[in-house]
Amino acid sequence: MRADPGEVAASAWIAVLPREASEELLARLGEDLRQRGWAADASRGEEQAILAVEGPRDAAALRAVLPGDLEADVFPLLEAAEYRRLRQRRRFLSALVAGLSLLIAVGLAWPLVGFLEPPPRTILAPDWMHVPAADRLQVGEAVRTQVRGKSIWVVRLAAARWHALSAACTYFDECLLEWDRERREFLCPCHGCAFDAHGNVVHAPASIPLVAREVELREGAVFVRRAL
């Protein structure tokens, strides 16, 4: 290639074997070469068999393994410096891929093990709905949410007391009530109805109190019953 095979300390070599080289011979040679810690790959072309070998310091080292009666031509495939450069690059990239894979595996193992840990709240009652926004309410605050397609207000009346009431005005149910924090009343923007925090009418024209839903506090989470 670039210099006489005998002089270059190449580390990758091509041995061209005559066509007569049998499949068994190639297999045995590959085995011999690998036992010396070299990498070997054989392929068979139309005219000859080719043995690619990585590792020998020089051509003589490779020739010593090949049978003496075999008419083999040995060529350097890569000069030592080039070979080392490519091998280093390959090693670096392999290490990079392995390292990143390991990082991803470790990074995922943590969440996946956590996922298997039974959650503190194991209730999964379909009849009760957790209202996360209600957990965080201050006393006197209210939040509007939906249960089975109906709007409701969840209001925090005391440190450990929540109420859930229908958010539709009982006088005209197209109107959604607003929570007045100062007066602690639900006001209707349509006809001026007002209800107290328990749902009782405090201002006409409405005459029917708001429908209340059961509320349960479980381990700090507010649950509203879906069914009336």
Partner: peptide, 16 residues
């Protein structure tokens, strides 16, 4: 409800 539970209560449920 179980999907909601998974997303809110289960550790890393949202990730999985």
């Amino acid at each position: 409800e179980s999907v909601r539970f998974l997303m809110r209560e289960v550790a890393w449920g949202w990730l999985v």
